[in-house]
Amino acid sequence: MNNEATLNHGHSHRDDLGSKMGMWLFLLTELLLFGGMFILYASYRYMYADNFKVAAMHLDTLIGSVNTILLLTSSLTVALSIAALQRKQTRFSVYLLLFTIVAGGAFLVNKYFEWSAKIGHGIYPKGPEMANLSDGEVIFYGLYYVMTGLHALHVIVGLVFIGFMVVFILKGKQTFDNFQRLENAGLYWHLVDIIWIFLFPLFYLIH
Protein backbone atom coordinates (compact mmCIF):
# COMPACT_ATOMS: atom_id res chain seq x y z
CA MET A 1 0.00 0.00 0.00
CA ASN A 2 2.79 2.40 0.79
CA ASN A 3 6.44 2.46 1.50
CA GLU A 4 6.26 1.80 5.19
CA ALA A 5 4.06 -1.22 4.73
CA THR A 6 6.27 -2.81 2.14
CA LEU A 7 9.70 -1.68 3.29
CA ASN A 8 9.48 -1.74 7.00
CA HIS A 9 6.76 -4.08 7.98
CA GLY A 10 7.48 -6.35 5.07
CA HIS A 11 9.99 -8.41 6.97
CA SER A 12 7.59 -9.31 9.75
CA HIS A 13 6.51 -12.91 9.52
CA ARG A 14 3.34 -14.03 7.89
CA ASP A 15 1.05 -14.94 10.76
CA ASP A 16 -1.64 -17.32 9.52
CA LEU A 17 -3.04 -18.00 12.95
CA GLY A 18 -3.30 -14.26 13.63
CA SER A 19 -5.05 -13.75 10.33
CA LYS A 20 -7.48 -16.54 11.09
CA MET A 21 -8.05 -15.10 14.55
CA GLY A 22 -8.96 -11.76 13.01
CA MET A 23 -11.43 -13.52 10.73
CA TRP A 24 -13.01 -15.43 13.59
CA LEU A 25 -13.43 -12.29 15.66
CA PHE A 26 -15.11 -10.67 12.69
CA LEU A 27 -17.40 -13.68 12.34
CA LEU A 28 -18.40 -13.31 15.99
CA THR A 29 -19.49 -9.73 15.31
CA GLU A 30 -21.56 -10.99 12.38
CA LEU A 31 -23.05 -13.63 14.59
CA LEU A 32 -24.14 -11.02 17.12
CA LEU A 33 -25.43 -8.74 14.38
CA PHE A 34 -27.86 -11.51 13.50
CA GLY A 35 -28.07 -12.30 17.21
CA GLY A 36 -29.75 -8.94 17.78
CA MET A 37 -32.40 -9.93 15.26
CA PHE A 38 -32.79 -13.37 16.76
CA ILE A 39 -33.53 -11.67 20.10
CA LEU A 40 -36.25 -9.69 18.35
CA TYR A 41 -37.56 -12.79 16.61
CA ALA A 42 -37.68 -14.72 19.89
CA SER A 43 -39.42 -11.86 21.68
CA TYR A 44 -42.06 -11.27 19.03
CA ARG A 45 -42.62 -14.95 18.50
CA TYR A 46 -43.24 -15.20 22.22
CA MET A 47 -45.71 -12.29 22.10
CA TYR A 48 -47.48 -13.33 18.91
CA ALA A 49 -47.10 -17.11 18.90
CA ASP A 50 -50.38 -17.79 17.05
CA ASN A 51 -49.94 -15.07 14.44
CA PHE A 52 -46.42 -16.31 13.71
CA LYS A 53 -47.70 -19.85 13.06
CA VAL A 54 -50.31 -18.58 10.64
CA ALA A 55 -47.81 -16.41 8.78
CA ALA A 56 -45.15 -19.13 8.63
CA MET A 57 -47.61 -21.44 6.85
CA HIS A 58 -47.66 -19.05 3.92
CA LEU A 59 -43.94 -19.38 3.26
CA ASP A 60 -42.90 -21.94 0.66
CA THR A 61 -41.21 -24.84 2.47
CA LEU A 62 -40.05 -26.36 -0.81
CA ILE A 63 -38.07 -23.30 -1.89
CA GLY A 64 -36.68 -23.02 1.63
CA SER A 65 -35.56 -26.67 1.62
CA VAL A 66 -33.99 -26.43 -1.82
CA ASN A 67 -32.10 -23.34 -0.72
CA THR A 68 -30.90 -25.12 2.40
CA ILE A 69 -29.51 -27.97 0.35
CA LEU A 70 -27.89 -25.49 -2.05
CA LEU A 71 -26.09 -23.67 0.73
CA LEU A 72 -25.02 -26.86 2.51
CA THR A 73 -23.58 -28.22 -0.72
CA SER A 74 -21.80 -24.96 -1.51
CA SER A 75 -20.29 -25.10 1.98
CA LEU A 76 -19.04 -28.59 1.25
CA THR A 77 -17.41 -27.52 -2.00
CA VAL A 78 -15.60 -24.63 -0.30
CA ALA A 79 -14.23 -27.00 2.33
CA LEU A 80 -13.20 -29.47 -0.38
CA SER A 81 -11.62 -26.70 -2.40
CA ILE A 82 -9.18 -25.88 0.44
CA ALA A 83 -8.31 -29.55 0.79
CA ALA A 84 -7.76 -29.75 -2.96
CA LEU A 85 -5.49 -26.73 -2.97
CA GLN A 86 -3.42 -28.26 -0.18
CA ARG A 87 -2.95 -31.33 -2.33
CA LYS A 88 -1.77 -29.10 -5.18
CA GLN A 89 -4.88 -29.98 -7.22
CA THR A 90 -5.21 -26.37 -8.23
CA ARG A 91 -7.64 -26.83 -11.12
CA PHE A 92 -9.94 -29.02 -9.06
CA SER A 93 -9.86 -26.42 -6.31
CA VAL A 94 -10.93 -23.70 -8.74
CA TYR A 95 -13.74 -25.86 -10.15
CA LEU A 96 -15.07 -26.47 -6.66
CA LEU A 97 -15.10 -22.74 -5.97
CA LEU A 98 -16.87 -22.08 -9.24
CA PHE A 99 -19.48 -24.63 -8.23
CA THR A 100 -19.90 -22.74 -4.95
CA ILE A 101 -20.50 -19.53 -6.85
CA VAL A 102 -23.10 -21.20 -9.06
CA ALA A 103 -24.89 -22.72 -6.05
CA GLY A 104 -24.82 -19.38 -4.19
CA GLY A 105 -26.17 -17.68 -7.31
CA ALA A 106 -28.97 -20.24 -7.54
CA PHE A 107 -29.82 -19.52 -3.90
CA LEU A 108 -30.22 -15.85 -4.74
CA VAL A 109 -32.34 -16.58 -7.80
CA ASN A 110 -34.70 -18.70 -5.67
CA LYS A 111 -34.80 -15.92 -3.10
CA TYR A 112 -35.70 -13.47 -5.83
CA PHE A 113 -38.67 -15.57 -6.99
CA GLU A 114 -39.78 -16.11 -3.42
CA TRP A 115 -39.77 -12.41 -2.61
CA SER A 116 -41.43 -11.54 -5.93
CA ALA A 117 -44.27 -13.96 -5.21
CA LYS A 118 -44.86 -12.39 -1.80
CA ILE A 119 -44.70 -8.90 -3.21
CA GLY A 120 -47.06 -9.98 -6.01
CA HIS A 121 -49.60 -10.89 -3.32
CA GLY A 122 -49.28 -7.43 -1.84
CA ILE A 123 -47.38 -8.64 1.20
CA TYR A 124 -44.57 -6.13 1.67
CA PRO A 125 -44.10 -3.13 3.95
CA LYS A 126 -46.89 -0.63 3.30
CA GLY A 127 -48.28 -3.12 0.74
CA PRO A 128 -52.05 -3.36 0.05
CA GLU A 129 -52.46 -6.75 1.73
CA MET A 130 -50.72 -5.71 4.97
CA ALA A 131 -53.78 -3.85 6.29
CA ASN A 132 -55.70 -7.15 6.38
CA LEU A 133 -53.06 -8.90 8.47
CA SER A 134 -52.86 -9.08 12.24
CA ASP A 135 -50.13 -7.19 14.13
CA GLY A 136 -48.14 -10.37 14.67
CA GLU A 137 -48.19 -11.23 10.98
CA VAL A 138 -47.02 -7.73 10.05
CA ILE A 139 -44.09 -8.09 12.47
CA PHE A 140 -43.39 -11.60 11.13
CA TYR A 141 -43.10 -10.32 7.59
CA GLY A 142 -41.08 -7.32 8.78
CA LEU A 143 -38.57 -9.66 10.38
CA TYR A 144 -38.74 -12.00 7.40
CA TYR A 145 -37.79 -9.29 4.94
CA VAL A 146 -35.06 -7.81 7.13
CA MET A 147 -33.46 -11.08 8.19
CA THR A 148 -33.55 -12.90 4.87
CA GLY A 149 -32.63 -9.65 3.12
CA LEU A 150 -29.60 -9.10 5.30
CA HIS A 151 -28.68 -12.75 4.89
CA ALA A 152 -28.93 -12.42 1.10
CA LEU A 153 -26.63 -9.41 1.33
CA HIS A 154 -24.13 -11.60 3.14
CA VAL A 155 -24.46 -14.25 0.43
CA ILE A 156 -23.59 -11.62 -2.17
CA VAL A 157 -20.56 -10.44 -0.17
CA GLY A 158 -19.46 -14.04 0.31
CA LEU A 159 -19.74 -14.72 -3.41
CA VAL A 160 -17.58 -11.68 -4.15
CA PHE A 161 -14.97 -12.93 -1.67
CA ILE A 162 -14.95 -16.34 -3.28
CA GLY A 163 -14.73 -14.77 -6.73
CA PHE A 164 -11.57 -12.98 -5.59
CA MET A 165 -10.19 -16.28 -4.29
CA VAL A 166 -10.63 -17.86 -7.73
CA VAL A 167 -8.59 -15.01 -9.18
CA PHE A 168 -5.95 -15.34 -6.44
CA ILE A 169 -5.56 -19.06 -7.04
CA LEU A 170 -5.30 -18.62 -10.78
CA LYS A 171 -2.68 -15.91 -10.30
CA GLY A 172 -0.76 -18.11 -7.90
CA LYS A 173 -1.31 -15.82 -4.91
CA GLN A 174 -3.01 -18.59 -2.97
CA THR A 175 -1.08 -21.82 -3.08
CA PHE A 176 -0.80 -25.18 -1.33
CA ASP A 177 1.32 -23.71 1.46
CA ASN A 178 -0.19 -20.22 1.52
CA PHE A 179 -3.96 -20.51 1.62
CA GLN A 180 -5.02 -18.46 4.63
CA ARG A 181 -7.09 -15.99 2.61
CA LEU A 182 -8.96 -18.83 0.96
CA GLU A 183 -9.53 -20.37 4.35
CA ASN A 184 -10.85 -17.03 5.69
CA ALA A 185 -13.21 -16.67 2.73
CA GLY A 186 -14.33 -20.22 3.44
CA LEU A 187 -14.97 -19.42 7.08
CA TYR A 188 -17.11 -16.48 6.04
CA TRP A 189 -19.09 -18.66 3.66
CA HIS A 190 -19.67 -21.30 6.34
CA LEU A 191 -20.97 -18.61 8.68
CA VAL A 192 -23.48 -17.53 6.05
CA ASP A 193 -24.50 -21.17 5.91
CA ILE A 194 -24.88 -21.44 9.69
CA ILE A 195 -27.10 -18.38 9.84
CA TRP A 196 -29.32 -19.92 7.21
CA ILE A 197 -29.41 -23.18 9.19
CA PHE A 198 -31.23 -21.20 11.89
CA LEU A 199 -33.29 -18.92 9.66
CA PHE A 200 -34.74 -21.83 7.73
CA PRO A 201 -36.61 -23.64 10.54
CA LEU A 202 -37.56 -20.41 12.31
CA PHE A 203 -39.31 -18.96 9.28
CA TYR A 204 -40.37 -21.93 7.18
CA LEU A 205 -40.93 -24.88 9.48
CA ILE A 206 -42.48 -23.67 12.71
CA HIS A 207 -46.18 -23.86 12.07
Binding site: D16, L72, L76
Partner: peptide, 30 residues
Protein backbone atom coordinates in the same frame (compact mmCIF):
# COMPACT_ATOMS: atom_id res chain seq x y z
CA UNK B 1 4.87 -14.28 15.93
CA UNK B 2 6.38 -17.39 14.40
CA UNK B 3 4.10 -18.60 11.67
CA UNK B 4 2.05 -21.50 12.95
CA UNK B 5 1.04 -23.58 10.01
CA UNK B 6 -2.63 -24.30 9.99
CA UNK B 7 -3.26 -27.92 10.76
CA UNK B 8 -3.60 -30.60 8.10
CA UNK B 9 -7.11 -30.81 6.80
CA UNK B 10 -9.09 -34.03 6.90
CA UNK B 11 -9.63 -36.00 3.72
CA UNK B 12 -12.38 -35.51 1.14
CA UNK B 13 -14.26 -38.51 2.56
CA UNK B 14 -14.91 -36.97 5.96
CA UNK B 15 -16.23 -33.77 4.41
CA UNK B 16 -18.64 -35.67 2.21
CA UNK B 17 -19.79 -37.71 5.19
CA UNK B 18 -20.49 -34.55 7.16
CA UNK B 19 -22.37 -33.12 4.21
CA UNK B 20 -24.48 -36.27 3.99
CA UNK B 21 -25.27 -35.91 7.68
CA UNK B 22 -26.31 -32.29 7.17
CA UNK B 23 -28.60 -33.16 4.28
CA UNK B 24 -30.06 -36.03 6.33
CA UNK B 25 -30.80 -33.71 9.25
CA UNK B 26 -32.43 -31.23 6.89
CA UNK B 27 -34.70 -33.98 5.59
CA UNK B 28 -35.62 -34.97 9.14
CA UNK B 29 -36.41 -31.44 10.25
CA UNK B 30 -38.57 -30.80 7.16
Amino acid sequence: SENTHTQQHPGYGLYILVWAGLVGLTTITV
